[in-house]
Nucleic acid binder design. Structure first.
Lengths: 208, 208, 208, 208
DNA sequence: TATGAATGAGGGTTCATTCAT
DNA sequence: GATGAATGAACCCTCATTCAT
C-alpha cells in the first residue's frame, strides 16, 4: 500500500490512468466497465488491481492526477500593478490554454457529471472554481482600491466575469451547438473584457 | 405501445415518472435501479413494464414530461417596447421562478449529468438554452435598433448576460460552497443587471 | 430485511437451505460455489440473493436452522431419581437418535471444519457441547450427593463419559475406517456404560 | 520434479513448507492464498513454483513432512510387563509431549478441517489414530491375558480410553471454552487413568 | 535462483427484464 | 392491472499460475 514503488511502477500506473480517463469521461463512473478500461489500456482486466485497489481508487487517482489545481492558477497576486485592460485578456488566454489541454477537458466532463451524484465531486468542483475566483477577487479589490475600477463587491464582480466566460468553455464540454460555435476565443475574450471594463469603469473621472 | 390509452393509464404513468424523477436525479441513469424506482413509486418492479418498454423509455419520458420547453420562455417578442431597465429584472425573476420549481431543478441535474455521456442529452440541453437565448437576442437587437443599447452582437450580449447569471443557478445544482451562498437572488439580479446596463449603455447620447 | 414474510417465502428459503447444506458439508464454505448451490437447489444463481443477503447469511442461516440446540438436550433435570444404570443408556440412545438424523450429521461436519478457521464456529461448537455437558454434570452431582456414585468432580466425569462416546460418533463424520466400524451402537453403549458405572461406583464402604 | 536435488534445494523447500504451515492452519487450503504463503515465507509468489508443482503439492508435502507418523507411537510392544498403573500415565505424558509440539498441533488443525471435505485427509486421520490404537490394544490384550485387567474387547477399551482423553486435546485445537480450560493435563491424566483402572480392574482378585 | 508483472478463468453479486399467478 | 419470484447476462474483483527479466 504505502510502500515506495519503483519508477516503472508509477509509469505503468499513469499509463492505465491515462487510458482510463477518456473511458470514464465517455461513460461515467458506473458506465465504464473494467473491461472497457482494460481494453483501452491494452491490458488484462485483472492487472488493474495490481496497480489500484479497486475501480474507485483508480477513479480518484485519475482526478488527482489530471486535475492538478496548481495548473488552474495565475500568479495574480504579483500582478497588482497590471491594469485590468491588460490583465483580463491575459487571464482569458490562460484559461484558454488550460481548457485547450485535452485531458483537462476530459476531467472536467467527469467532474461535472459525477458532481450531480456525489458530493465529493462537487467539492472538487468548488475547489477548482475558488482556486480561480479568490485570487481574481483579490486582484479586483486591489484595483478598486487603486481607483482603477468602480467600487463594488469584488467577489461578485469576479464571479460574474468568470461565469460569463465559463459558458463559452462549458459549451465545448457539453454538446455542440453550431449556432454558438461560430465565435473564436479571441473575439469572445475581447467582447467580454470590453463589456466588463465599461461596466466597472471608475465612477466618473469627469474633470471640471 | 402507441395505442391510445385511457386517462387512468396516463395518470398512473405520470405517477411513476414523478416518483422516478428524484431517484434518477440523485443516482443517475445507471445508478438508479428499477427497484429504487418501484419503491419510490410504491409499486412492484414488474409494473414498470406495463407502462414503459424499459428503463430507458421511462427515462426519456421523464425528460419529455418534466422538461417542458414551453415553460422556459418569456413572451419577449411582445415586450419590445419595455426598456431593458425594466425587462432585465423581469427576465431574471422569471428564471428564478423556473428554477425554484423543484422538478425543473431535478431535471436539470439529470440533464447536466447525462449530457456528459450521451449526445442526445446534450441536444436537449442546447435546445433549452437556445429557447431562452434566441428570443432574448431578438429583444436585444430590437433595443439596439431603438437606440436604447449600444451597438454590438446581440447573440453575444445575450449569451454573456445569461451565462453570467447561470453560474448562480448552477451552483445550486452543484455542491454547496458556503462562501458563494451568501448572495440572495435579488441582490445578484440587481448587480448583474446594473453591470449589463452600464456595459451596453448607448454610446454617448449627450453632447449639446 | 426484517419485514414479515409469507409462509411460502419461508418454505422456499428452507428448500434452498436444505439443498445447500450438503454442498457446504462436502466442499466447505469457501469451496462451495453459488453455482454448486444453485444447481443443487435447481434454481438460478441469482435467486439465492432473493432469499439471502449473501453467501455468508445463507451459511449461518443453515447453521441456525439445522443445528437447533433445543434438540440436543434431554430433560435431565427432571430425572434426578432415575439411577445411572437406567439413565446412561437412555442418554446414549438420545444421542444416537440425534446423530442418526442425516442433517445433523452434515451440520456437524460443517461445524468441525469451519471451527478450524473461524472462532465463531468454535463458539457454536462449544455451545452445543456445553448444552449437553452442563445438565449431565448437574445430574451426576445429584447422584453423588445421593450416594449412587462415588465422590469426584462431576464436570470431569461428564466430560470423560461424553468424550469417550464422542469418538464413536465422530468417526462417522470423519472418514470410514473399516476396522473401527464393526461395533453396533448398542454394544458400544453397553460397554461404555458398564465401564463408567464400575469406575464410579460408590466407594463401597460396606461394613462387615 | 522427481530429479534428485541438492541439499540446499531441499532446505529451501522445507523453509517454504514451514512458513506455509501456519497459514494453511489458520485459513484452510482454499482460504490460504499463494500471496499469503509467499509473504509468510518472505519470498516472491512465483518462487513457490520452483519448488512445488502447484498449491496442492505444497499442501500435501506439508502434511507428509510435518505429520510424521513415526513420532506418534510409543514402544508399547516392548513394555508388556509394565503394569497399566505405570504405563497409562506414561502414555498420556507421551501424547501430551506430541501435542505440545506446535507444528503437530497445526497439522492436526489442517487435517481435521480438510478431513471434512476430502476422503484422503480422512485416511490420514485414521492412519494416525490406528497408529496409536493398535499397539495400545495389543498391550491391553496382553494385560488381560496376564490377568492384570478384566476380560473384555481390548480394541474397545483402547478406543474408549484414547477418546476420553482426546477431547481434552481437541478442545485446545478447537475454540477455547473457559469453563473447560481449568484442568491441568496432569490432573486430567490422573483422573482418567484412575477411572480406567477401576473400570477394568481384574474381576475379583480377592477371596482368600 | 528469484522476482513480480501479467494473465484469465472463475468467484460472488447485482439488476434489467420476464412471466406465472 | 398488479405482484414478486425467477432468470441470466454482466459486473467487479480474486487468485493460481506463467513467464520475461
Amino acid at each position: 500500500m504505502s510502500k515506495p514503488q519503483s519508477a516503472e511502477w508509477h509509469e505503468r500506473r499513469r499509463q492505465i490512468m491515462a487510458a482510463a480517463l477518456p473511458v470514464f469521461a465517455e461513460k461515467g463512473f458506473k458506465g465504464a466497465t473494467n473491461r472497457d478500461i482494460a481494453e483501452a489500456a491494452h491490458i488484462a482486466p485483472g492487472l488493474i488491481y495490481h496497480y489500484f485497489a479497486n475501480k474507485e481508487e483508480l477513479f480518484t487517482a485519475i482526478l488527482d492526477e489530471f486535475l492538478p489545481l496548481d495548473r488552474v492558477s495565475l500568479p495574480l497576486e504579483t500582478m497588482t500593478n497590471v491594469p485590468p485592460q491588460q490583465l483580463l485578456p491575459l487571464l482569458l488566454q490562460g484559461l484558454n490554454v488550460i481548457f485547450q489541454e485535452p485531458r483537462f477537458f476530459l476531467v472536467m466532463r467527469i467532474l461535472v457529471a459525477e458532481t450531480m451524484h456525489t458530493p465529493e465531486a462537487g467539492q472538487r468542483f468548488n475547489a477548482i472554481f475558488k482556486r480561480l475566483l479568490d485570487p481574481f477577487a483579490a486582484y479586483l479589490r486591489a484595483q478598486i482600491a487603486a481607483g482603477r475600477l468602480r467600487a463594488g463587491d469584488p467577489l461578485l464582480m469576479a464571479q460574474m466575469f468568470l461565469s460569463s466566460v465559463a459558458i463559452f468553455f462549458l459549451r465545448r464540454i457539453i454538446g455542440q451547438d453550431p449556432t454558438l460555435q461560430g465565435y473564436d476565443p479571441d473575439a469572445m475574450a475581447h467582447f467580454v473584457t470590453d463589456a466588463f471594463l465599461r461596466a466597472f469603469a471608475p465612477e466618473n473621472n469627469s474633470s471640471p
